[in-house]
């Protein structure tokens, strides 16, 4: 089960990297993280019903100057592929994708989603890091946001239970 400390570390990393708007669809493994986002006063939190909506919300907010992130499970990454392709990538929109890595080694649910997650990101041309070390959380977030801004593309962080 995810820990408060893991969620707090990620929120602190997002703030240090300048993230000020997060759209989300929940997963049980991100419960603490989502709960913190609901309470946070500095980061605008916009829950959506389907992940592709969130890609649209982040895009619209970026146009007005927000530094955005989309929080979702990897099943939601699959739901949002067209929005990522024909909106985020085609218009050149930096979005930090925070994706819970269901079906990863050691995770007993959604193994098919886990199997296709990294090949789908590679196919989309979205660079990613699999986050397994809590000590590297802040620098991975900062690095991903730096690359998203310089490349004007989404960059993905795959969150495993080890960092949540």
């Amino acid at each position: 089960m995810a820990s408060i400390a893991g969620a707090e570390r990620i929120i602190a990393g997002l703030k240090e990297a300048g993230i000020n708007l997060v759209s989300s669809v929940p997963d049980i493994n991100m419960l603490q993280l989502i709960n913190l986002l609901y309470e946070d006063k500095e980061i605008a939190h916009l829950p959506v019903g389907r992940e592709e909506e969130g890609i649209g919300v982040c895009t619209g907010a970026h146009l007005a100057g927000k530094q955005t992130a989309m929080l979702m499970q990897n099943g939601g990454l699959l739901n949002s592929c067209n929005g990522l392709t024909t909106t985020a990538l085609q218009f050149g929109i930096p979005i930090l994708l925070l994706i819970y890595y269901a079906g990863d080694i050691g995770d007993n649910a959604f193994h098919m989603v886990g199997l296709v997650t990294e090949p789908v990101l590679q196919g989309l041309g979205i660079k990613h890091i699999v986050m397994r070390d809590p000590a590297r959380v802040k620098q991975d977030i900062a690095g991903a946001v730096t690359l998203a801004n310089s490349s004007k593309r989404p960059v993905a962080l795959l969150l495993t239970r080890a960092v949540l």
């Binding site: 916009l46 919300v57 895009t59 619209g60 907010a61 909106t87």
Partner: peptide
Amino acid sequence: VKTLGLCSSIGLGLAVA
């Protein structure tokens, strides 16, 4: 907008921001 259906979501993000 280039993604069918996404204009309402993009508009929402813009309006909130």
